[in-house]
Design a protein around this nucleic acid. Structure first.
Length: 272
DNA sequence: AGTCGCCTGGTA
DNA sequence: TACCAGGCGACT
């Protein structure tokens, strides 16, 4: 579900409620979501720890604890995070809870049970987190970096954008929207893109991700922020989920294709 | 590089 | 009833 703008919105809404709190205890109702160690060991190690911060890396949320311990969370398709009063009614499909020292608890709800939780020491992240590409909204991410990350591969640009090792945080919605703004057909190979096209794509990526954050993410079905609120970027979408509608640029029809196993939306007239 | 599995629920 | 879904890792 959530891509970079949604995960960042969750971070912004959850962080003030977690920072400075101490974890009292926890409960996991879907054991497979905890990676690497047993649920028992996980809960033993985080109980009593103070939360010092919360960062985001790509689509991962990282809850920082004292003693350089970090809880990594990935919401995958349908994960939702909230901090609520411990005595408030439990919604359906909450499989992970951490009770805090002020009568609230962090709740991880996940309809499809794809979400993951893991624990690691600072400086020793799991491989998947370590291999992740540059943050597209960081100052280090420049046109030259994007060009270098693409390299001379014959990989389709849509697949390249979805590859977290090439660039962090982009998923199906923002990949399709970025390619629309850049006027690039999703099947174009990255080594066929001109310098001007990569430049346009770079600016398109920054535009859709920053506007996505500004509007609190895209709510198609499940996504909610840390307060349980829907985002509003779905009102700005040009191609994603717009099959059969008219292109805002040319008035042609938006089409949807299955591409690399993912629904891919684009305007065949504007995107070459 | 492509396909399958993980899961559940909404929609065609 | 079948297909589809903001993701990703393990297969072949």
């Amino acid at each position: 579900m959530p891509e970079l703008p949604e995960v960042e919105t969750i971070r912004l809404t959850i962080l003030p409620k977690l920072k400075g709190r101490r974890i009292i205890s926890g409960e996991v109702l879907h054991e497979k979501m905890v990676l690497g160690i047993s649920v028992k060991e996980f809960l033993e190690r985080v109980s009593g720890q103070k939360i010092t911060g919360m960062e985001r890396r790509g689509k991962y949320l990282l809850i920082e604890l004292a003693a350089d311990l970090i809880i990594g969370l990935h919401l995958r398709m349908t994960g939702q995070l909230t901090v609520e009063k411990s005595d408030s009614p439990l919604a359906k499909a909450i499989y992970f809870r951490l009770s805090l020292d002020n009568g609230t608890e962090l709740r991880f709800r996940d309809q499809r049970k794809f979400g993951k939780v893991f624990l690691y020491s600072r400086g020793e992240p799991p491989l998947a987190l370590e291999k992740i590409g540059p943050e597209p909204l960081s100052p280090e991410f420049t046109v030259a970096v994007l060009k270098e990350r693409f390299g001379q591969r014959s990989l389709a640009v849509k697949k390249a954008l979805l590859n977290q090792e090439i660039i962090a945080g982009i998923g199906n919605i923002y990949a399709d929207e970025s390619l629309f703004y850049a006027g690039i057909h999703p099947a174009r190979s990255v080594n066929s893109l001109t310098g001007a096209e990569i430049d346009g794509l770079y600016h398109a990526i920054q535009k859709v991700l920053s506007e996505g954050i500004k509007l609190g993410g895209t709510t198609f079905r499940d996504y909610r922020d840390g307060e349980g609120r829907a985002g509003s970027y779905q009102n700005k979408l040009n191609v994603y989920g717009q099959k059969g509608k008219t292109c805002p640029n040319c008035g042609g029809l938006i089409v949807k294709m299955n591409f690399g196993g993912r629904g891919t939306h684009f305007c065949p007239l504007c995107q070459k």
